[in-house]
């Protein structure tokens, strides 16, 4: 009977989360639009939305952009930077740890749109970055036009590294000092200690963290949308941005949801890996 207290939460999740997923599977097989005659009397068109997707060069571009963005900003960028910070912070004074930790965490708690404005200013032609490289006689460079993908990747690294930092701090505190010391005595240098001793010990955290940083980056919308709007052209149009444009700008609900399903399948795949790694650790 105590189990009844589970029901309100499960009902809410079912209604607002699972039901839309099921609806989206159905819509993805239709030619439904947001407005006009096809918004009410839509037809089932089989898998033609999916077939069209793979012929749609702009979708292919958005898919590749998503992969590039994921790999460089989350899988490599956030994780490597987060690890470096966590690693260097070991055995440092409390004051320094607090200063560095807070600076990194501020990026994490800053709201999405504000992150976009901050980097809009930072990367603009008359922005801080060009000021800095100007001191060396370089530039000015139109970052948001010529290197827009790099700009959104940097913004996401700035925003997300704190999570990896915290994860690796927790993992590194569990690495026994004896393991590191005995390797040092055997003549291993710092990099050998990292690659041969530390990384193998924390590989469980690396697997989990890779998935945990990938998921929010896969669904990231606000930062890219407010910073570049997916442009210039389609240079920074990731799948969520393209999905939004198709569904709400071009009113192609059927096609938009088909794209959402692909996004969902990708995250389901990641989620399964996540649960597998979780089970493995239990």
């Amino acid at each position: 009977m105590v189990i009844v207290s589970l029901l309100p939460a499960l009902a809410l999740i079912g209604f607002f989360y699972l039901a839309p997923m099921i609806i989206s599977i159905i819509y993805s097989f239709t030619n439904k639009t947001l407005v006009g005659s096809k918004s009410q009397e839509f037809d089932f068109v089989g898998i033609s939305n999916y077939i069209f997707m793979f012929k749609d060069s702009r979708f292919i571009v958005s898919f590749i952009n998503t992969l590039v963005f994921l790999i460089f900003s989350a899988v490599l960028g956030q994780q490597i930077l987060g690890f470096i910070i966590a690693f260097l912070m070991q055995n440092k004074s409390k004051g320094l740890r607090k200063f560095v930790g807070t600076s990194v965490l501020l990026g994490w708690i800053t709201p999405e749109v504000v992150v976009a404005f901050i980097f809009f200013a930072f990367f603009s032609v008359k922005g801080s970055l060009n000021d800095a490289i100007g001191l060396f006689g370089i530039g000015p460079i139109a970052w948001l036009f010529d290197f827009a993908m790099i700009a959104v990747i940097v913004a996401n690294i700035w925003r997300g590294s704190a999570f990896s930092m915290l994860m690796y701090q927790a993992a590194l505190s569990n690495v026994p000092d004896e393991a590191k010391e005995s390797a040092m005595i055997d003549g291993a240098n710092k990099f050998q200690v990292i690659f041969r001793i530390i990384l193998p010990i924390i590989k469980g955290t690396i697997v989990t963290n890779t998935i945990l940083v990938t998921i929010p980056t896969l669904g990231l919308f606000g930062v890219i949308f407010a910073l570049t709007g997916g442009g210039p052209g389609n240079d920074t149009t990731t799948m969520p941005i393209y999905m939004y444009k198709q569904a709400f700008i071009s009113y192609q609900i059927g096609y938009g949801t088909a794209m959402a399903i692909i996004l969902l399948l990708l995250s389901i795949l990641l989620s399964i890996f996540y649960i597998k790694s979780f089970r493995y650790e239990m």
């Binding site: 839309p20 989206s24 569904a247 949801t257 995250s267 996540y274």
Partner: peptide, 22 residues
């Protein structure tokens, strides 16, 4: 518990179009 964990792995972004329709 595992199902809940599974759902946390699905980005909100992916369901916003059907949520809007609903």
């Amino acid at each position: 518990m595992l199902s809940l964990l599974f759902i946390t792995g699905l980005p909100i972004t992916a369901i916003m179009v059907p949520v809007y329709m609903m």
